[in-house]
Design a protein around this nucleic acid. Structure first.
Lengths: 162, 162
DNA sequence: GTCAGTGCAAACTTTTTGCAACTAC
DNA sequence: GTAGTTGCAAAAAGTTTGCACTGAC
């Protein structure tokens, strides 16, 4: 699906959600939704705030961003993550299911897909629980940091020997 | 393994970790480790702080708690989670691998085990990444909240009809 | 004796809240 | 018209930091 179509669809979903829950259709809410669906990958409130200001020339307060994000999460149009100190978000409509690798050294988050993994998780029978969505975070060290550490170790070894 | 044995073992592991990394063996560090391994399930810094004060009568500053927790994470004796606003931690030595169900309504976190799930995740081949540990968070609604909502809906329906 | 570690308070960051002004309905 | 929303600023909550003092080595 093209970006423009996705944007139209999520707008409709959001409109229905707002109507169904007695919320108002404000320009701020649609502008926020539009900006979010222009962003690839993760973002936090600060990124969203400055992107709306600088890129989209639309001024909203942080308070409104926080409020609207909650609505979007409830409307299943946005997913919230908390790998770092600040909450991270991402659009969720029309996105492939993916998992997250988080480097414990540099904090870099990369996504990957794995159908077998996805399948097992989604077919797992849960007791007394109604699944909405899930997040799999894999912590470890990315190849970049591993390489850096190796170099560092070599350096220290040489130093010791000299 | 009995609690006392576990405590002795993790103490040894921690001692080795401290020695290997040129850190000092302070009474605070061992007291914190001991308290953590007395706690079942998750805790946050605040809980740990008051538990040490009230239950164990050991006074440490929050700053020291934050510092020590980082060491314990690096020593693989503690795992960090971030499902809520404050970071949650749990002991990790001699604990069965488990996954987390998080109720989006009441915030309750329950643990469950599933060998098939665990197996698939652990045998997944990762590209350019060296796995250390992982967290699977399943979001949805617990049976308690589902029941509450159902009752609420029935009530509203009755009201509408009257 | 030295320097890592500690406690304390202040600073900082992220998120929430109270309130007046605004506007979608 | 009015109640839900917004923006702003203040407050709250969680975490980090600077600095003087302490104690492990």
């Amino acid at each position: 699906m093209e970006t423009q179509n996705v944007k139209e669809t999520v707008k409709q979903i959001f409109t229905e959600y707002l109507k169904a829950n007695g919320h108002r259709k404000t320009p701020e809410r649609y502008a926020i939704l539009d900006t979010i669906y222009s962003i690839d990958g993760h973002f936090d409130i600060d990124m969203l705030y400055s992107r709306m200001m600088n890129h989209d020339k639309f001024r909203v307060s942080r308070a409104t961003l926080y409020n609207t994000i909650i609505l979007l999460i409830n409307a299943k149009l946005v997913i919230k993550h908390q790998f770092s100190n600040s909450s991270q978000y991402e659009k969720s409509y029309n996105r492939d299911t993916h998992h997250h690798q988080i480097c414990m050294q540099c904090g870099k988050v990369t996504e990957f897909q794995n159908d077998a993994l996805q399948n097992v998780i989604e077919t797992t029978k849960l007791k007394r629980f109604q699944l909405s969505h899930y997040s799999l975070y894999i912590y470890g060290m990315c190849s970049n940091c591993a390489r850096k550490n190796k170099r560092k170790q070599l350096k220290n070894k040489k130093k010791d020997e000299s």
